[in-house]
Design a binder for these strands. Structure first.
Lengths: 332, 332
DNA sequence: AAGTAAATTGCAACCGGTTGCAAAAAGACG
DNA sequence: CGTCTTTTTGCAACCGGTTGCAATTTACTT
């Protein structure tokens, strides 16, 4: 069924090298030979074996796309953008679903076996060490949605979560609330920690405003709803910064079920601005994370590092901005 | 950086074959040799090159996962289940995002270049011919969420969309509505056509109930909302069967914005039962499509066909059932 | 301990390509 | 037309593994 270079060579009456050369960019072939080869190739339905050629060229054009976020709808948008971005550059995503795994060993071994040219770790919850495990074995890697470090060991692309926390705090202060709160995702997620830090940093300057902090067990609807329901049993805050949109939507569900009005009784601001946030029946005020830019930069960086392996690790953070919708009292 | 079999052989003081054999299931190696090789391998950090071995074994353990549904949140669940199902069997998903492409030629060429062992086409909107293009070049293929045919050319796993249409019609009749309607997805999607057909088949037996049909331009929130808003401008039906959950949610948004009550004024039943459907603030009555079973069967079938290429194409349809929630008047 | 059967090992060819090098062909020039 | 360049071509070795086969070792029998 599979037709090889040798058969094309025979049919075209040329050497195997000639066939190889007509299919390699920039190789030296005369127009006449190329024509003969191409004719034979289409007649036989030949297409070169990318894996075999990778053996000698050292390039597979395979990129490992590693993630543990298969439950947050934002990540469907993320996968869409990544796969398209990679495909446009002639690269192929080899998808790795970590589920609850946090040890990089398996992924590293597996992606090494497949000789991927590079790896993109797409996760806001994994620690920097995860991506570093790839660098340690010499695979170009980018951590997308990862944590900023002043002396990065690997490329990191994402947002300044601390700045987002500050931005959220300022926005909540502007509502005139007397009690505000941070409702984070999993306590050990780097994104949660950073957002909280920025939030509390600003709130520290306003001791007159009561500030509380709590965590949902996951970046999920259920976790947000459960945690908010718990908060509603005692005196809740008047405005919440939720660590993620889907968490916010869960929280909103609990708030409305308790018979409270949004944003009058309780206001909510989320983070991400996933597609669903602008659905009219959700209409979530949120901090927009520019995922298209983040993903574009991630792909650029991984490609750049493949071409230039000694490149210094860099951090690219994109600015976020508040998208005003209906879940937070408007500014005066 | 990359350590090869040869280097392990030298360090272990054995032949290259011996090293190869210790890493191949069921090959003949003595315990002593194996121990020497394994020791050398860990010392060197060796792991075999899956691509190189695929050259001789003819197996890459790569499975092409082809889809054009990167905007329907259901498909995040689908990708989660597929990637996990494949990984559990030691297979690796090579993801292909078709975007709006409907010509299989590119995907076929690309996946052939990577010598995938099999392909899964995950789409409810692509025609059977798409998957058949893979079979035509001898690649084992399964069309998941595809259309049933009496003499299938490729494996199809999914649901009986016609039966779902019937089921929905009967359920809507049971609400006692005088006007019911089908609000489908894209008119050319096979799933839309089949669901409509089943729906109308049942409604034909009830000429006393006014039945109408219309289509949204996509299986998306916006398309559902826009189409429902249009319908609301004249006399809408009292109960709608929407071709998909996300479409239903869009429709519900339009209905509520028009100041109408659900399910009192207008009822809605969706299809899929995606995770979001049971969110308390959505609480959508819907027809549950058993995606875990569909995906499990798809993976089984593709694996089975790899082992046994001459296997006859088969169709596996899974039963659906109605999940009663809050968007349709309960049965008497 | 010799003889036979079974298990293990290495050789060498092969999987489907690529590429450095030298030979051959084509083109440029006087 | 002969000479010198430049381009094109094929040979052969190689990429990192696997595997049939024959030779060697080991294990069993008696």
């Amino acid at each position: 069924m599979t037709v090889t270079l040798k058969e094309v060579a025979i049919r075209a009456g040329v050497s195997r090298s000639a066939v190889s050369r007509t299919f390699t960019e920039g190789a030296s072939v005369s127009a006449k030979t190329r024509a003969k080869v191409e004719k034979a190739a289409v007649e036989l339905g030949y297409s070169p074996n990318a894996l075999a050629s990778s053996l000698t060229t050292g390039r597979t054009k395979l990129i490992g796309l590693v993630s543990n976020n298969f439950h947050n709808p934002l990540f469907l948008e993320v996968f869409d953008l990544f796969t398209r971005g990679l495909q446009e550059r002639g690269l192929r995503p080899l998808l790795v679903n970590l589920s609850a795994e946090t040890d990089p060993a398996n992924s590293v071994r597996m992606l090494r076996q497949y000789s991927v040219d590079g790896v993109i770790v797409a996760s806001s919850t994994l620690p920097p060490s995860f991506a570093e495990a790839f660098r340690d074995v010499g695979i170009p890697v980018v951590h997308s949605f990862g944590r900023y470090t002043s002396s990065p060991q690997v490329h990191v692309v994402g947002i300044d979560n601390i700045a987002c926390g500050r931005m959220a705090a300022q926005r909540l202060i502007a509502t005139g609330s007397q009690r505000v709160a941070f409702l984070g995702g999993p306590e050990k997620a780097t994104s949660t920690q950073d957002r909280e830090r920025g939030f509390l940093e600003v709130m520290a300057s306003r001791p007159d405003i009561a500030t509380t902090v709590s965590y949902a067990s996951a970046y999920s609807f259920d976790a947000g709803r459960v945690e908010m329901a718990r908060l509603l049993q005692s005196t809740p805050a008047q405005a919440y910064f939720c660590g993620d949109d889907v968490l916010s939507i869960g929280a909103l569900s609990a708030i409305r079920d308790a018979g409270l009005q949004v944003p009058e009784d309780i206001g909510v601001i989320g983070l991400n601005d996933m597609a669903m946030a602008r659905w009219e029946n959700i209409n979530l005020t949120t901090i927009r994370q520019p995922i298209a830019e983040i993903i574009g930069a991630s792909v650029d960086l991984v490609v750049g590092t493949i071409d230039q392996p000694e490149r210094h690790p860099e951090t690219r953070l994109f600015p976020c901005r508040i998208i005003e919708r209906g879940t937070l009292r408007p500014l005066a």
